[in-house]
Design a protein around this nucleic acid. Structure first.
Lengths: 245, 245
DNA sequence: CATTGAACCACACGTAACGTGTTGTTTTAT
DNA sequence: ATAAAACAACACGTTACGTGTGGTTCAATG
């Protein structure tokens, strides 16, 4: 039999927490002293350990109570649901990360807070990613859209995103350049190599995406590739006599 | 000028939320009617949009208030901190996912809730992963430990983990087999191929890890590779006349 | 101008899982 | 017996609002 203080020391759980678990009926001490002090048995300790394990797995105390109260809990179902929840949360965090990185570089490269662009980024990510790509429906087939999702939300490292954003930002800061100039050509060359890196040299996807970007009337399209950047790249291509796609 | 209801409809934010933002001084309407009804200006709307953007990025209302109150907020610092927080949370979720998958297959393969194993899994993941690998310090250098972390927490697909766990589970369920038997040999063969798949054919890492597993006195080591499993594999190796590493 | 229905304000309580006190009682060590 | 430590029970605080209530103001109608 352990007092609440001993149990607390042994398990690392605070007394207040044990107090609370008693209060909500999650772990009731199996006996008490004549004076009313709580005494926990070995069984209680085991129960507590199970609670801690389930808590670590992300279940709420309410769920844990249900699970442990049930004599034959449907574990696989519970775990499956919990896993789905975790996966959704992972997706949300991934988008959050992308948004933060996007905003960070937007600030770094533009030197100020460009709220409209930030709003666009947020809007783009706020709805589910699938919906965000609907605007490309006319130009990209489903497989291609899925691939872009991967690039945007899954496979790409922060380092790659950084370089990609830098390439675009460099162009944004030099829109005034003569398309025939060597510098313009160099900037676009860097952009092309980054684009190829990101899309794994999938020429067809790249071509279709390019078509889509050119035709989209407004918005930030593929952040931060706005119309100005796209037009500049196109002018340089024309200057070089290349007709992309 | 918008009433609170109009603003709510335009932005999708509930009236109660705007009420709350007013209450905590986050967004105060810039004027009121004689009767006390709130009137929001265009500036207020912009402010609200900024709040929503920052909120999406995961900042607390308290932080948002600080950031927006500050005339020259240190954006990069704020975003960096936020990113770190997000990354920590991502790590936590990744471990949670692994723990859930581990427990799920532990149940599926063993047919019951093996609480001791589950506790071990939790304990292993509860401390930070680096610390969990400290027990291998004697056998694995830093680079190798880092590689294991990747396998454990990053790169491995759920499908691969499933097969890996199945291979081990199959052995656990057949510990009684004669090491010379054909079935034992087949099981170990599957295990070896899975191990090689997971560690990308890095023979040296595999060898060192094997050494580590053999020498660890207790614990679940590399879940669910406990002592029994390791000993069985070793016996089969010996039976075949192979001296692994 | 009076009425009426809608919108609005202000306030209160509830949420999850405890942390942080406070006061009064029990236990333990001396 | 007494003092110190541990404990019980209760209350309030935390976040970002949802939900509900009663009373007030607004806008449109007769």
């Amino acid at each position: 039999m352990y007092t609440i203080g001993e149990l607390s020391k042994n398990t690392g759980v605070t007394v207040r927490t044990l107090d609370y678990y008693d209060e909500i009926g999650l772990i009731k001490p199996s006996s008490k002293t004549s004076g009313g002090h709580r005494l926990y048995s070995e069984d209680d300790v085991m129960q507590l350990e199970r609670v801690l394990a389930l808590k670590y797995m992300g279940f709420s105390l309410e769920q844990i109570k249900d699970i442990l109260a049930n004599s034959k809990p449907n574990w696989q179902e519970s775990i499956k649901q919990q896993l789905e929840l975790v996966k959704r949360e992972q997706g949300r965090l991934k988008m959050l990360e992308q948004a933060l990185v996007g905003v960070s570089y937007s600030i770094e490269f533009e030197g100020e807070i460009n709220w409209p662009i930030i709003f666009s980024i947020i809007q783009l990510y706020q709805q589910d990613p699938e919906a965000a790509l609907e605007q490309y429906r006319e130009y990209l087939n489903e497989e291609e859209r899925k691939k872009i999702l991967d690039v945007n939300f899954e496979q790409t490292s922060e380092e790659d995103i950084k370089e990609w954003l830098k390439a675009i930002s460099d162009i944004r800061n030099n829109l005034h350049l003569d398309p025939h100039s060597e510098k313009a050509e160099r900037l676009v060359k860097i952009w092309v190599s980054q684009a190829e890196k990101m899309f794994g040299g999938d020429e067809e996807l790249l071509g279709d995406l390019w078509q889509a970007l050119q035709n989209l009337k407004e918005g930030i399209a593929f952040y931060p590739m706005d119309k100005n950047v796209i037009n500049f790249i196109e002018r340089v291509f024309i200057a070089k006599g290349v007709t992309k796609q």
